[in-house]
């Protein structure tokens, strides 16, 4: 009865890469459609109607990608019309739509993924692979905003001391270069303190361990097993050749064989796992509430 975002970050990551991996390595239009629709739906379920700008951006990207292909590529047998002596073909249009769906779908998924994977979760996933990488990442995550704040403060300090003599661009650039060099020095100087603080707490005395903030629960294992099972069906279908699809010179017709049908069903199920989880959680909460 957990929200999808409460599932173990590692399991969530496996699921994400299963969904996007299938979308990226096949070009079967049905899968693209499922991935795009699922990606948009999942983003909407999590964010509601917020982020209108993101949607607009993705729509524009979709349009650009879909139009670009027929302009550049003139392969294909079915000529729709001719612009400036170059033919625009139906096949190229379909291919453009298909790849635009693929790219935009995957971008939607990654947008949701970055929302779900807060730095804690990212660290816990990388930490399972290597505690060292995880520490490096953690330090980097802290360093970037810290340097930025220091740069802002330095610029303010210099301004109030009359460093930027005149109000023009050249003077501003000069000033900013000097601020940058000062912040670099500051970072190096303070790096020494951090290094001391790390040495004082036994860094480099041997193998590191990693504190585990997330404990694997039964539902995580079930989720992971379901993900891998469904992915297995999809991969088997792909290996069988059911997801091969040609656009040129004549676009194939969509008529999946039995393996393909199973593969499509499995992928559709895989994509809807989080929606099922969220709905289940919502229903259970409602049920619990009515009891209270």
């Amino acid at each position: 009865m957990r929200n999808f975002s409460d599932y173990d970050p590692f399991a969530v990551s496996v699921w994400f890469f299963a969904v996007t991996g299938m979308a990226m390595f096949c070009n079967y239009p049905v899968l693209m459609l499922i991935s795009l629709a699922g990606g948009i739906l999942f983003f909407l379920v999590r964010n509601g109607t917020k982020h209108a700008k993101s949607h607009l951006f993705f729509f524009m990207l979709f349009a650009v990608l879909a139009i670009a292909n027929p302009i550049v590529s003139h392969n294909g047998m079915t000529v729709l019309f001719v612009v400036n002596d170059s033919p625009v073909t139906l096949e190229a249009v379909l291919y453009g739509l298909n790849s635009a769906a693929m790219i935009v779908g995957v971008l939607y998924w990654f947008r949701s993924y970055t929302q779900l994977m807060t730095s804690d979760k990212l660290l816990s996933v990388t930490g399972r692979l290597s505690p060292k990488i995880s520490l490096l990442l953690s330090m980097a995550l802290r360093c970037v905003p810290m340097l930025r704040r220091q740069a802002d403060r330095t610029a303010d300090a210099q301004k109030a001391m009359g460093l930027f003599k005149d109000d023009n661009i050249i003077d501003d650039i000069h000033g900013n270069i000097r601020v940058f060099s000062a912040v670099t020095t500051w970072a190096l100087e303070n790096g020494i303190t951090s290094a001391d603080s790390m040495a004082a707490r036994g860094f480099g005395t041997g193998r590191r361990t990693q504190m585990r903030k997330y404990k694997l629960r039964r539902s995580d294992i079930i989720f992971m097993a379901v993900t891998i099972g469904l992915l297995g069906v999809c991969v088997a279908a792909a290996a069988h050749g059911s997801f091969e699809f040609g656009f040129y010179p004549l676009t194939d017709r969509i008529c999946p064989d039995t393996a393909g049908k199973f593969g499509i069903a499995a992928y559709a199920l895989l994509v809807s796992v989080p929606t099922i989880i969220e709905t289940e959680a919502a229903l259970k909460w409602r049920y619990l509430k009515s009891k209270i």
Binding site: L135, M139, S194, M198, R201, F203, T209
Partner: peptide, 19 residues
């Protein structure tokens, strides 16, 4: 400048992780 990591809990765990 003495703080090494980006989260409070991670900072607390840092020394023990090293050991």
């Amino acid at each position: 400048q003495q703080i090494v990591t980006d989260k409070v809990w991670h900072e607390l765990a840092f020394g023990l992780e090293n050991l």
